[in-house]
Simulated scan of single mutants.
Amino acid sequence: MVNHQVSEWEAIALNKAGKTIPTSYLENVKKVVQENQGKFRLITDTERYTLGILAAGGDPTNIGGYNLVESIYNGNVTKQGLNGVAYALIALDSAKFKIPDLATWNRDKLLAQLLQKQNKDGGWAWDESTNSDIDTTGMILTALAPYKNQTGVKEKVDAAVQYLSTHYQNAKIDNSSTAAQVVIALSALGIDANGSLFTKENNSLVQYLLSFQNKDGGFDWKGGDVSDVFSTAEGIQGLAAYQLYATGKGSLYQLPLAAQTTVKENSTTPAVKQPLTQSVVVESSNSKVSTKGNPLPNTATNTYNLLILGIFLMMIGLVFYLREKKRNA
């Protein structure tokens, strides 16, 4: 994978596999964000860039002067169907970003949007139709994973897991990308993709995913010996997710925001590290926040000048009064 251009999904996989992400990745993303002035036609572009930036150790709330996280919670997340909604929740939860009270979307709204679109068979369809598909169901389960024990969520998750299990048992999972999405979802939920629920004829879902890996290390989509970049990225994400599950080290999209250091006002001002769970906006797409405050009006000097003027006028008045009194004597 590292012999090809690293995209957002590869960056996430490399991060979770404990590998080094090329420094050029973050530099390239910064240029793309600046060229587009922080605005992308597809909300999923904003969401995947947010995840990739986090994986590479960057801050998506201030990348090239733009706040991508704000563009998510104030964006049109439903424009691309349920994929946009699912990855909005995944991106916002990835580093536990704080969402303002007046934001267009919050976690409760995103959850409600996903839950109410579940079909009777337990799955979801990206276009919100009644024709559920496995990939979308896996993605949405990954988004729901942090909330899996909440009332009203658990029942939905259980039904979706059964939907996926049935489809695997019936050989409906027939390519590496779909297998990877399901492994990612199950691992986030704490369900063993190598267990009996996802085993058919002694072949588990993890083993099935591994069957698509070729001698060059890459993955192909649906069988054969020619690897492709997309299938490889999804395949390694699935393996990284399962490894995280097996070692009890969280899920694929847990990407804490690296500690950021504020700009020093002068050499005597210590740098302050921002909390990991908060989003700190240094620059937005419309304005820059200066680290220097405007000076307060010099009200003390003005008052002093008025006092001196008043005393001077009183002295003139006193002299005038004494001269008039002497003249009239």
Rank of each mutant, 00 (worst) to 15 (best):
V2E: 15
V2I: 01
V2D: 05
H4R: 12
S7P: 14
E10P: 03
A11G: 07
L14Y: 08
N15T: 07
K16D: 04
I21R: 09
I21S: 02
S24E: 14
S24W: 00
Q37S: 09
D45K: 12
R48E: 11
Y49C: 00
T50S: 09
T50C: 03
L54C: 15
A55I: 06
A56I: 02
G57A: 10
G58F: 07
T61R: 05
N62H: 04
G64V: 01
N67Y: 00
L68W: 05
V69A: 01
N74G: 04
G75Q: 02
N76A: 11
V77N: 13
T78C: 11
K79D: 09
G81S: 04
L82C: 06
L82Y: 04
G84K: 05
A88M: 02
L89C: 11
I90F: 01
L92Y: 01
K96D: 06
F97W: 06
F97H: 01
K98V: 01
D101V: 11
W105T: 03
D108A: 06
L114Q: 02
Q118W: 12
Q118I: 11
K120A: 14
D121F: 06
D121M: 11
G122E: 13
G123W: 15
G123C: 08
G123A: 15
N131Q: 13
S132V: 09
D133R: 07
D135K: 13
I140Y: 10
L141A: 08
A143Q: 14
L144C: 04
P146T: 07
G152H: 13
G152A: 10
G152D: 06
G152P: 01
V153P: 02
V153G: 10
K154Q: 14
E155Q: 14
A159G: 10
A160H: 08
Y163M: 12
S165V: 12
T166D: 09
T166Q: 15
Y168S: 10
N170T: 15
K172G: 15
K172I: 01
S176E: 04
I184R: 10
L186V: 10
A188V: 08
L189T: 00
G190D: 11
A193I: 05
N194L: 12
T199M: 07
K200I: 00
E201K: 14
N202F: 11
Y208I: 03
L209R: 00
S211D: 09
F212T: 09
K215Y: 15
D220T: 14
W221P: 02
K222L: 13
K222R: 15
S227F: 12
D228P: 02
G235D: 04
I236C: 03
Q237G: 12
Q243C: 10
L244R: 06
K249C: 01
G250E: 02
G250N: 02
L255D: 04
P256K: 12
A258K: 12
T261N: 07
T261S: 12
V263D: 08
V263A: 13
P270W: 00
K273A: 04
P275M: 00
S279D: 00
V281W: 02
S284V: 03
N286L: 14
V289H: 11
S290G: 13
S290F: 06
K292M: 13
P295N: 11
P295W: 02
P295I: 12
N298D: 14
T299P: 04
A300W: 13
T301H: 11
G310C: 12
I311G: 10
F312I: 15
F312C: 09
M315G: 10
M315P: 05
M315S: 07
I316R: 00
F320G: 05
F320L: 04
R323I: 14
N328I: 00
N328G: 07
A329Y: 15
